[in-house]
Each structure stands twice: as C-alpha cells, then as structure tokens.
Amino acid sequence: MQRRGFLAGLAAFLAPILGLPFRRARADGPPEQAGGAPPHAAGKPAGKPRRFGMAIQVDRCIGCTRCMDACKAENNVPKEPFFFRTWVEQYTIKTDGELVVRSLKTGNGKPSESVPEREIMRSFFVPKLCNQCDHPPCVQVCPVGATFRSPEGVVLVDEERCIGCRYCIQACPYGARYLHPDTKTADKCTFCYHRTTRDLLPACVEVCPTSARIFGDLDNVASPLTRFKRMKKIHTLKPDLNTEPKVLYSDLDGVVR
C-alpha cells in the first residue's frame, strides 16, 4: 500500500471524528448537473436533462449483426469476439422443448443454423446491451466512484480513475461490462454519449435496418419511444433484481434472461 494513500485514507477515516472537512458523495443517483454540464445538444434549452432510454422490438430483429459491427467501429471496442458493448442472441426452442441459445458472430456472414430446421418449434433474435439501470448494481459497488450515472441517466466509466478491480463486472446481472484489454479499465455501452448529446442516434440504432431499436428521451411526451411505451406490452430483463432498466423490450419471450 502506498504510503501516501495510506495516510490520506487514515485522514479520510478520521476526518469525521476530528470534524475536518471531508466530502462524501452520494451513494448513487446523478450528480445533479455536474458543473457546467457537457455540451448538451446544441440549442437545447438548459434545464431538466433528458432521460435517455431505448426500446427493442424483438419481433423486428433479423439478426443481421449490423448493430454489433457499427458499435465496435464507433466505440473502439476490440474486434475480437470476447468484448461487446452490444450483441445479438439467437434463441431456438426445439420441438422437444430444449432451449438452444447462442450469440451471433460479428462480420459478414449469415447466422448459421445451429438446429436442424425440422426440430425447431420457435426461434427469434434478442439484441442485448447495457440496460442503463436507474438502480445500477455496478455503480453501487465501484469502490472508487469511477462509474456513475450521468444527468441523462447513462451509466459511464471514468477510464482515468477506474482501478480495474472488476467488481462492477461481477455485479452486472446482464454481462454488459468487460475489461478493455488496452486500457485495463471497465468498459461498457454509453448509449453513444458522444452522439446522443449532440442529437445523433446511437450507432446501433442508426444502422438498424428494421427499426428494431428505438432511441429517445423517456420523458418526452410525444416521440417514437413514447409511442412504443404506450402501445406495446413492455418487459425488462431480470425485473426481479430491481435494477430498473431503461432498455425496454416488447414481444420478449419468457425464456430470455
């Protein structure tokens, strides 16, 4: 343990006792309008920040993997198939009831059939990504506060402060985080924060050919996302964990976890 950290820690520990000023951050929850908020969408009136969310219409996904490729290209995600900010799962329920799941490979190539067609009862694709939980377990466990919720409700990682302990990776129920092999810090979907704060769509939404993904402000009174919320029966992933995801699914099958 470094001497300096050691001492400072002791100070942090003793400060409340000795009445010294020692700032304590809130457990989670957005740091309100963290000073001079980032370049929000130009022309957007200052005030209440938007609350980003995504809808996924499962019965529109054709498993073309354009979103996976676009995400890797846009966000410097390693090309190798062990690191994903978003991925697409193929579920196949066989006539004998067996469930076969796999995640699609990136690159050009049609999703190969892993199950002979005459044994298929039902089959579909499910795109996955960080759920940008309103009650994120990853933020709760980060020991140094390097991951937090932005004013827009997006969970971000401070790559200059992340110590690479990987507690957040363990805490995420959705497998949405990975350790970036170059920076050695935790990495995850940011809802393309650099695009969405400038009124562009996230890369995966931009390239989706069937509009299976809808992105927007959850608080907006009239938008494709709001329409989706009104018209569809919505599910979230692992609702029993009370993470309050902001990625909403319609037509989601019960076997999906």
């Binding site: 950290g5 942090a12 304590r24 980060c142 020991p143 140094v144 506060g145 390097a146 810090t185």
Partner: peptide, 22 residues
C-alpha cells in the same frame, strides 16, 4: 490483481460509501 495497481490510493481518497469494497 488490479488493472491499475498504481491507482490503488483512490480507494482511500474517494471511497464510494455504497461500495462494500471501498
């Protein structure tokens, strides 16, 4: 085990009160 062992002091400088590890 840390990805960035040289940043270990942060756990004492800015501990996240809600983190068991902090």
């Amino acid at each position: 085990h840390l990805g960035h062992p040289e940043r270990n002091f942060e756990i004492l400088l800015t501990p996240n009160p809600s983190s068991a590890m902090a």
